[in-house]
């Protein structure tokens, strides 16, 4: 499903339908996250990807107006780059642990401690929340700062406070 949507996005020329497909793509990937037991992530992806991001794309689209995507004449550069990257990735995939294997290295590092100790140390049932807010509080502080900085950047770029946009660079 995801691959079909992605290919449809490649083929489509109308920007409006590409934006709509982007929303559908996010919703489908959210269902995939539920299937992979990541309920918190699915929640966020559904709200952010299918909701806010589509609205932001549409409102930016409303400012710039209707544009059809033009065709680049020479696809060779892109195809070569993609195939090279693809070959490298496929080569490295054979080193990955089997999907769903409980003995994979990722499950034997800090994760067992989070799962076993967080009930005593933090005392709340949702492990994702306790890792997010307590064990990795520094991380999350950084992420929130990035979000805030993005707001500052957007406001600077769009110059909302200056009223008219006559004095643009």
């Amino acid at each position: 499903m995801l691959a079909i949507t992605a290919i449809a996005i490649i083929v489509m020329r109308n920007i409006l339908s590409v934006i709509m497909l982007g929303g559908i793509y996010s919703l489908v990937s959210a269902t995939l996250f539920v299937a992979l037991d990541a309920v918190d992530v699915a929640f966020t992806e559904a709200a952010v990807g299918a909701g806010i991001s589509t609205v932001l794309f549409l409102s930016a689209f409303a400012v710039t107006g209707q544009h059809y995507a033009l065709e680049r004449k020479n696809h060779n550069v892109a195809i070569i780059a993609v195939l090279t990257t693809g070959a490298a990735l496929v080569y490295s995939i054979s080193d990955m642990p089997v999907f769903g294997d409980p003995a994979a290295p990722i499950h034997n590092h800090v994760a067992p401690r989070y799962i076993e100790q967080s009930a005593e140390e933090i005392g709340i049932p949702n492990i994702v929340t306790s890792v997010l807010a307590s064990y990795r509080g520094f991380d999350t502080l950084g992420e929130v700062t990035v979000v805030f900085t993005a707001l500052v950047a957007v406001l600077l770029l769009l110059g909302v406070n200056r009223g008219s946009r006559k004095d643009k660079p």
Binding site: G123, I124, A133, T140, V144, V147, F148, V154, L158, V160
Partner: peptide
């Protein structure tokens, strides 16, 4: 830990909500 997480999440929630709202307003 309960109090800490409660207020941290509150701070995150306020920031994320208002950042999204003001980005939308800006556009």
């Amino acid at each position: 830990q309960h109090w800490g997480i409660f207020f941290i999440e509150l701070g995150v929630g306020i920031t994320v909500a208002t950042v999204m709202i003001s980005i939308f307003y800006a556009f």
